[in-house]
Simulated assay, not measured.
Amino acid sequence: MTPELTVLALAILLQAAQFAAYSIRANLDVGPGYAMSARDRDPSRPLSDLGGRLQRALTNHFEGLTLFAPAALLVAVSGQSTPFTAACAWVYLVARVLYVPAYAFGWRPGRSLIWFAGFLATISMVISTLI
C-alpha cells in the first residue's frame, strides 16, 4: 500500500474517533432521550459550545476528506507516489489531528492556519500528479 493510502486509512479512523467524541459530548448535552429519538423537533437543551465545535470540526473533516481521498487515490492509481506526495499526505493527517483541539478550544488564528496547511498539502498532491 502506498503511504498516501495508509494516511487515507488513518484519516478515516480519525473521522471515526471524531464522530465518537462528538457523539459522546452531544449525548451529554442533549440527553440520551433526544439522541435516540427520531429528532422530529429541536432538542429541549442545546449543544454546549464544545459540542457545537466538535460537530463543526467533524463536518469540516468530512469536507476535507472529499478532497483528500481522491487526491490519495489519484496518486496511488497513477503510480506517482513520491516522497513529496507521501510528505503531503502526512502533513494533511497531522493538520487534521491538530485541527480537532484547535477548533474545540478556539485557537485563533491557529485553527485557520492548521486548516490551510492540510488544504495546501492536499492540493499539492494533486498538482504533483499533473506535472
Rank of each mutant, 00 (worst) to 15 (best):
L113C: 08
G51N: 01
S78L: 10
N27K: 14
G31W: 08
Y34F: 07
F105H: 01
A89P: 07
L54R: 04
L73A: 07
P70D: 07
S23Y: 12
L47G: 03
L65W: 00
R96M: 05
L98W: 11
A104F: 04
A72N: 05
R39P: 01
L50S: 02
V91Y: 04
R111H: 03
D42N: 12
Y22T: 11
A104W: 12
R108A: 14
A117R: 01
R25K: 08
F62S: 14
A71G: 04
V100S: 05
N27R: 14
R53Q: 04
V91N: 03
L58I: 06
G106R: 01
D40M: 13
A38T: 15
P83A: 10
D29F: 03
Y99H: 09
T82H: 00
G106T: 05
G64F: 10
L54W: 04
D29A: 00
R56W: 12
I114L: 06
L58F: 03
Y34H: 03
A21F: 04
A26S: 08
A89S: 09
G79I: 05
W115S: 07
E63A: 02
R39Q: 13
S81A: 09
A86L: 08
R108Y: 15
P46C: 04
L113Y: 14
I24T: 07
A87H: 12
R108S: 15
G79Q: 08
V77A: 10
Y34E: 00
G79K: 00
W90H: 13
G79Y: 03
R39L: 06
I24K: 10
P32C: 12
A35D: 02
A35H: 00
G64Q: 13
G106Y: 05
F116L: 15
S23F: 12
R108V: 15
L74I: 05
T66P: 08
R108D: 15
G51C: 10
T66I: 12
A71Y: 00
P32K: 14
T82D: 09
P70K: 00
F116S: 14
R41K: 15
A57E: 10
L67A: 12
Y34Q: 08
S44A: 15
T59S: 15
F62E: 14
G106H: 09
R108K: 15
